[in-house]
């Protein structure tokens, strides 16, 4: 394991794809950066631009070496890409899939196969080495895909929603294992996800993209506690409202739902219409739309839900104590 201090320059990218992306991304070697944001925010475009498979204007520097001046072709960039649909070569067995990136870099066939087997073992699919992709389950295929991306020891590992489309149980165990491999990985890893759990469990840093721009960049804890966009607030299960140029976040557990106007500060009190009610753990989660805009969520006990007779379309008052609200500025 090389020292991270020696490889201090990790990733420094400024990328512009007309109408789709205008973002900067920096990370130290060894960092795992999660990129989250709604569909169409430009997450996959960012990965594609970093890998060189989406045409982009700007600069990418990895490990102190520029990939854009002069332009380095995709094949010489040393990226490892893990695709949402795995994209394993259908005509090659798992072993040959993993050995592919070693063979193209001049590793002799026998050695490439041996190293491929080691990587498959590390990912827990060593006994499936001679199977074709169509004989693998989704979780097994994704393990092979991760082994294939890691085997050539890339400087930059790009993961595009690696758990999407997997069964919940499979995704959970794979997430734990990936955390282990990412911890041992020397380069920079960029993980695109729409799952807050991925971002919070796997990443050292979270970058929030919206409309192709970075709207928040911080530690997972910071982003989870003080989300700056409604999308992330919803992902981490918080209410976020904008008041007087400031953002105010509060947990749905802290919200009181009542039929009449409660006492207390008007700014912590909203007249809203119930949009839906769904079970959430032991509680019921109420989604309501306030008259003046924001969507709010509140967790109530089943008993009080019955007492309130909550149903879509019903007007209610929602309120929160000032002590439960975290107030922060819009820009850092």
């Amino acid at each position: 394991m090389t020292s991270r201090a020696l490889e201090a320059p990790g990733l420094d990218a400024r990328l512009h794809v007309p109408d789709r992306l205008d973002a900067s991304l920096t990370a130290a070697a060894g960092d795992v950066v999660a990129v989250i944001g709604p569909n169409g925010a430009g997450k996959s475009t960012l990965l594609g631009a970093l890998a060189g498979i989406v045409p982009a204007i700007g600069s990418v520097e990895v490990g102190g070496r520029s990939w854009t001046d002069p332009v380095v072709p995709v094949r010489d960039r040393g990226v490892g890409l893990v695709f949402q649909d795995q994209s394993l070569f259908p005509h090659l067995c798992a072993r040959e899939n993993v050995a592919f990136g070693l063979r193209t870099r001049g590793v002799p066939r026998a050695e490439a196969r041996a190293r491929a087997d080691q990587w498959l073992d590390r990912l827990g699919v060593g006994e499936l080495a001679s199977r074709r992709p169509d004989q693998l389950s989704g979780g097994q295929a994704q393990r092979v895909a991760i082994a294939r991306a890691l085997a050539p020891e890339p400087a930059l590992l790009l993961l595009d929603e690696p758990f999407a489309g997997l069964d919940v149980g499979v995704a959970t165990s794979l997430r734990l294992e990936l955390a282990r491999h990412l911890a041992a990985f020397d380069g920079v890893a960029v993980l695109v996800t729409h799952d807050a759990l991925d971002a919070l469990t796997l990443a050292d840093r979270v970058v929030v993209l919206e409309d192709g721009e970075v709207v928040q960049d911080g530690t997972p804890a910071d982003v989870a506690a003080r989300p700056r966009t409604a999308h992330v607030a919803r992902l981490v299960g918080l209410n976020v409202v904008t008041q007087g140029g400031q953002l105010r976040a509060f947990s749905p557990v802290a919200v009181t739902v009542s039929p009449g106007r409660p006492h207390g500060s008007a700014r912590n009190c909203w007249h809203a219409e119930v949009a839906g009610v769904a079970p959430h753990g032991e509680a019921l989660r109420v989604l309501a739309r306030a008259d003046d805009g924001p969507e709010l969520i509140a967790d109530v006990t089943p008993a009080s839900a019955i007492e309130l007779g909550l149903a879509p379309g019903q007007p209610v008052w929602m309120s929160v104590k000032e002590t439960s609200v975290d107030t922060y500025t819009m820009r850092p």
Partner: peptide, 8 residues
């Protein structure tokens, strides 16, 4: 494209 990212 996959092959290119793998150095081919």
């Amino acid at each position: 494209v996959v092959a290119a990212t793998l150095g081919a």
